[in-house]
């Protein structure tokens, strides 16, 4: 069974078309959830709008629970899915730089693309900025290479690195997420509303 493309259940030639279709849905969902607005996105850091956090965690939970059920029922083989590799310090340093970029620019790449599509000029500038960032990284690759390729732990999951049962982890994660949602709503009520 699944994943369908790597197992040749769907011919390889379809992959580009599927990519476009998936992209359309991705863009539609992001835009409709309000991710094309940088001030809505930045709201998560100042407490006036927690849409990012809610969408992000709901999506992560739904996909986690759904994939685990599909794995359990045999529709998809979790072990053959692509697991993002873990380069410890690259993830931390890269994530930290991205965090500053996020709060300074107010977008992340996916959402900036949505904003570009509806004509936000700041998003267009942001995308050009990302390209310049990629260019800088590529030109200074030799400087970043030790971090980029070092501290490699393989394509590991939390099951490997924490030795935790995935089902229990998801259960606790769900409870934590629900608590976060409640807390976040309480915070939002106290923070002054910002209209954008």
């Amino acid at each position: 069974m699944g994943p369908l493309l790597p197992n040749d259940i769907i011919p390889f030639e379809w992959s580009s078309i599927i990519a476009i279709v998936i992209g359309i849905f991705f863009g539609f969902i992001l835009e409709s959830s309000g991710f094309s607005s940088s001030r809505k996105l930045a709201g998560v850091f100042y407490g006036y709008d927690f849409a990012v956090l809610k969408v992000f965690f709901t999506a992560a939970l739904v996909s986690l629970i759904g994939l685990l059920y599909m794995d359990y029922l045999g529709y998809v083989d979790m072990s053959s899915l692509y697991v993002h590799p873990t380069y410890l310090w690259a993830a931390i340093i890269g994530g930290a730089i991205m965090g500053i970029g996020f709060v300074a620019g107010g977008f992340c790449p996916g959402t900036s693309l949505c904003a570009v599509a509806i004509g936000k000029i700041d998003a267009i500038v942001y995308v050009i900025g990302i390209m310049v960032g990629v260019f800088i990284f590529s030109e200074l690759y030799s400087v970043f290479e030790p971090i980029y390729t070092g501290y490699f732990y393989g394509n590991i999951t939390l099951v490997d690195s924490l030795g935790i049962n995935p089902y229990w982890f998801v259960f606790l994660f769900t409870i934590a997420a629900v608590i976060i949602f409640v807390l976040v709503d309480m915070i939002r009520k106290r923070v002054k509303k910002v209209f954008y």
Binding site: I65, Y167, F171, V178, F181
Partner: peptide, 19 residues
């Protein structure tokens, strides 16, 4: 509705543990 949805989520996730 949010309480119900949250409970639904927790039940679904708990189901994974209990399966």
């Amino acid at each position: 509705r949010y309480v119900i949805l949250a409970l639904l989520f927790i039940i679904l996730a708990g189901g994974l543990v209990l399966l």
